[in-house]
């Protein structure tokens, strides 16, 4: 499967276990193109590593490789696991499916969008220059993002403390159900700072309907 892609544009998706003593990351190649992580691993380190050809051709599913710490990105959360919170604590990666119209709110432009990863979709709000910086099909990495209510809509956004960067295009699998913005959340009775899912308002986005493939 590796050879199908040609190196080194190939993204090797990996799950990682942190070896604190060695300060090394040992990585298990789970799959080269179709990401799936076992439930027991609840952190995801997902990163496009650029390997030299000999390394890529030697790596296969289930292999364990060791790379020095620091060459791998942050712990990223999957969209299905995001929970509304008043904190800028979400690091994730998604593909931009569709942008709505850019509107002006006070001094600033805002733009609603639908983004998704391989586990869920969510409504995203671009702000200011971000509105024009991305196009549908772009793969975007978000650092220190926030998932919270804005005028009654549940939205993911970078906020003042977060960052967005385009890291690729096209080559990402996504689903449009569930949509995390179309879930009704209630305060967690066991933890006043957190929310739990009460019910699904709509399985897919009501703002951006999914296109139907004819073939």
């Amino acid at each position: 499967m590796v050879s199908n892609f040609g190196w080194p544009r190939l993204s090797v998706f990996i799950s990682c276990l942190l070896h604190l003593k060695l300060r090394l990351l040992s990585i298990v190649v789970v799959s080269c193109d179709n990401i799936w992580f076992p439930k027991s691993v609840n952190i995801r380190r997902n990163h496009s590593l650029t390997w030299e050809e000999p390394v890529v051709s030697r790596l296969g599913q289930g292999d364990v490789a060791v790379v020095a710490e620091g060459t791998i990105g942050e712990i990223m959360v999957l969209l299905k696991d995001i929970i509304p919170a008043a904190q800028n604590n979400i690091d994730t990666k998604f593909i931009l499916l569709e942008k709505g119209k850019t509107t002006v709110e006070g001094q600033n432009k805002i733009c609603m969008a639908l983004v998704a990863d391989e586990t869920a979709a969510v409504h995203f709000q671009f702000w200011g220059d971000e509105c024009n910086a991305f196009n549908s099909g772009d793969i975007i990495s978000l650092t220190n993002g926030i998932f919270s209510y804005q005028h009654g809509n549940l939205l993911l956004r970078a906020g003042k403390r977060g960052n967005l960067a385009k890291v690729g295009e096209f080559t990402m699998v996504f689903v449009e159900t569930p949509n995390m913005s179309e879930i009704h959340w209630i305060p967690d009775p066991n933890n006043s700072k957190s929310y739990i899912k009460e019910y699904v308002i709509s399985p897919v986005s009501r703002i951006f309907p999914s296109p139907v493939s004819d073939m």
Partner: peptide
């Protein structure tokens, strides 16, 4: 080549519309 191979290796039939549009 990358995009065509990705489509024909990862995307499920019936869910290819957005990728086709982007292509």
């Amino acid at each position: 080549e990358t995009q065509l191979r990705f489509l024909l290796t990862n995307i499920k039939l019936g869910h290819q519309k957005r990728h086709q549009l982007w292509f």
